[in-house]
Write a protein that binds this DNA or RNA. Sequence first.
DNA 1: CAACAAATGGCAACCGATTGCCGTCCGCGG
DNA 2: CCGCGGACGGCAATCGGTTGCCATTTGTTG
Lengths: 335, 335
Amino acid sequence: MKSSTIYDVAQAAGVATSTVSRAFSNPDRVGAATREHVLEVARRLGYQPNPLARALVSRRTRTVAMVVSDITNPHFFELIRGAEMRAKASGYTLVLVNAEESPRIELEQIHRLTRSVDGFLLAASRQPVEDLLQLAAGHRVVVINRRVPGLASVVLEHAEGCRQMVGHLASLGHTSVVYLAGPRSSWMAASRWAAIRGAAAELGLRAQRMGPFAPTVASGGAAADAALTTGATAAIAHNDLLAIGVLRRLADRGVQVPSDVSVVGFDDIFAADLCTPALTTLGGAHADVGRAAVEILLTSMEQSRDQPPELTVPSDLRLRKSTGVPGAPADQPGS
Amino acid sequence: MKSSTIYDVAQAAGVATSTVSRAFSNPDRVGAATREHVLEVARRLGYQPNPLARALVSRRTRTVAMVVSDITNPHFFELIRGAEMRAKASGYTLVLVNAEESPRIELEQIHRLTRSVDGFLLAASRQPVEDLLQLAAGHRVVVINRRVPGLASVVLEHAEGCRQMVGHLASLGHTSVVYLAGPRSSWMAASRWAAIRGAAAELGLRAQRMGPFAPTVASGGAAADAALTTGATAAIAHNDLLAIGVLRRLADRGVQVPSDVSVVGFDDIFAADLCTPALTTLGGAHADVGRAAVEILLTSMEQSRDQPPELTVPSDLRLRKSTGVPGAPADQPGS
DNA sequence: CAACAAATGGCAACCGATTGCCGTCCGCGG
DNA sequence: CCGCGGACGGCAATCGGTTGCCATTTGTTG
């Protein structure tokens, strides 16, 4: 059952290997009759071109790598899903790499894969800017949910989203909000905090930042406690996982959400709509982000642009039950 | 910045390429002094072996493909995560393929990847047995959450789990259960129904099956309605997504869970603990399943066993709020 | 000290494609 | 009838390694 090669086909068809090769990858270069014949023989032999051999000389592997900072976070699934679909649609293969929140692992893996993929999707990269730039000098790179001057990137809109979020809280009567920050090396965390602080200043709210916290449910306990010490009536968690952890801790401590404290998150992960109370959060088409990132990578292989594209995918604030008027009486279930 | 090859190293070190090659892949074959020298030169030149070239001749790509029937299902995330970690630990790369619930796509993709990966992990494959066997004749394959005679497999224990589940319901006083089945081509669906029916018979319960339903939240509505028509007081959904959909629909229809109807699911996805009421479900270490599958694949490359291993990862029933005594007064929140 | 084996390094074929360049054959215009 | 250019097919080098086999050196043994 050894699979057949271009040589087998060439021999069986009575032509040279170059002709077989061209019949597949450069059809106009061979006569119509010959091409038909070769293709027919190839089909009969069940010939399947070997991607490795092809890649070795053509330097195109038709593979892209997606590096995520933490595969545990359900939010990335959407990203991955979108990327996988777009890649598959163009006959590309997606390899998945989990950086486990470690810049070192991230770098190591990228290094390891350079020769075997055509480009990298770096989702929520924890890499310092200079390292990213250096990386991009040697490889095709699209960063996701991070903006780096000079690099192609796709981010889910969040500046305007943060503004809306703070506006929403202000309109409910909150006067003091706390941002429960994500990891120190997270560009998103910095960017969100800037937007929140800006919006708060505009609207005359007090804004504080606590943290950093790991963007996990487990960290939510500490984050909730920190939030309470600030006296703020609204907590903006770095992401939904953290927010859900916060909700849990608040429930344990007997703090009512949203009457005592409002809580909002980011990402609108599947569970955000299911937890109690349902989480107000900034959602968006994450799959589109992944899709767009692959798209950019693929087109950048055809023609290299002068200006690397910076895409923004729209987001929207999804109001649910975890935000409300501060001090308002708790919902009576059934009322 | 063209990366250096084995030739560059050989020249710089004043040895033959074969020596360089062996210094890396067969260290005992060269003298210690030479090896050190070559390695030193290689390091200085930043030499990195080209995996493609290596794979072309060695026929080992150090890559495994994971094919999932539906990447949308969060349950697979854990599987993927475990697989990725185990693969990375051995210096292997994980490529991810979404079969989109289509056996055709599944087959197509496997075909496409045969030459570029060392083996396949088939998670919840929808492939007919004969196709799987044929596939396994040509490739290294481990099936996940499916048992196929003659194939290596890893499944999360569920027969005993179903028994416990039915036992749990029986002990609460239920006398009639309905299984809301998964896709027709799902081995799991068939296997679970068999276990449920068996356990029900043993315990003197009435068991019915409805469906098949797509294992998604969206299908939960239809599933819930179907369940209600049976008059059963307990519904066992094919997975948590379906169960969550069922809970939603029941809430919409004003049916109390668990007092009117108990609901249980499978997988214990993250959201299962967050929905209202929290879902009783059969959970387990899904990441271990993925890990084990890769493990089996990798060891099967070293020595091919006579008997393909069939692993079972333990599961456990996680009791939460969606199951209870039928007809018992609803929980008064706050009481 | 001769003879022989083990250790070590090099030569060159090979994995399975792609591709630049050349030769042949054909049709066509002059 | 000769010459020219385009279409088509083949030769062989190349991508970057691996590996079987041979040659040389070195150490060992009788």
